[in-house]
Amino acid sequence: MPPVIEVRNLHKRYADKVAVDDVSLTVQEGEILGILGPNGAGKTTTVECIEGLRTPDRGEIKVLGLDPLRDRAELTRRLGVQLQAGQLPERLQVAEALELYSSFYPRPADWRGLMHDLGLTDKAKTRYAKLSGGQKQRLSIALALVGNPRVAILDELTTGLDPQARRDTWDLIEGVRSRGVTIVLVTHFMEEAERLCDRLALIDAGRVVMVDTPAGLTERARIGQRIQFRPSRPLDDSLLTSLPDVSGVTRRGELVVVSGNDNALNAVTTVLARNQIVAERLRVEQASLEDAFVRLTGKRLDPH
């Protein structure tokens, strides 16, 4: 089956800087691909090229077999888009916006159902300007889905939502995916990426660093475990660094922090027992996608 979205060697520069250097991606039917990367990495420019909002300088893009620029009319009927700064007229009411947008599409979703699913029913008659940031965000998600699209591109899906609304939105997106809609998700949130995405594309400085499943990315970053404890009596670091399963030992005050692969905990406790040292306040952390990201790009995602 041909991929739903295919991007090959995309390159886009603005007057003063290269936004996207060389990006190639494929998205298969029915999957959720997450695009992850620090601010200014080129994530938004990449999806704007896929949406046909920007003209690439080089490279090829196909969405559902269509060229985003030449086949605009057809593409806009099948592609749902949530823009980062997507806005509506200030005096337009929630229900009016949904009804209006649903009239743009040949086979729209039920806009009242969407309004309910996104918890906007009691705001139906509220003007856009009077909505909170989270409500505006939910409305923009609803508008991206109101055309009943085959493919949806969601930029910063849950930015500005409180934790409960964020989880509700994830449920909604899983519901959309279960109907076979292919989704591209631009995100900052590790938790969101781990929960929703089948695969993740890591973009940094306009290039794809890596594409893998969330678990695969963590594994590739080779940070299995982090073990932290206070030794009951002085301890020579070399006892631990000599272990093959341990990749690093650092000190944080009286605490020893050991990182290593999945066997590190076993190896460390065995050595400590042999030397009659008790590990007090022992804590073990599993490496998160966040750690993997830092390891793979040398950068942090922006704090939220």
């Binding site: 649903s102 979703a109 039920d110 806009w111």
Partner: peptide, 8 residues
């Protein structure tokens, strides 16, 4: 939340 409904 329910799965999206589609209008006929």
């Amino acid at each position: 939340m329910s799965v999206l409904n589609t209008a006929p």
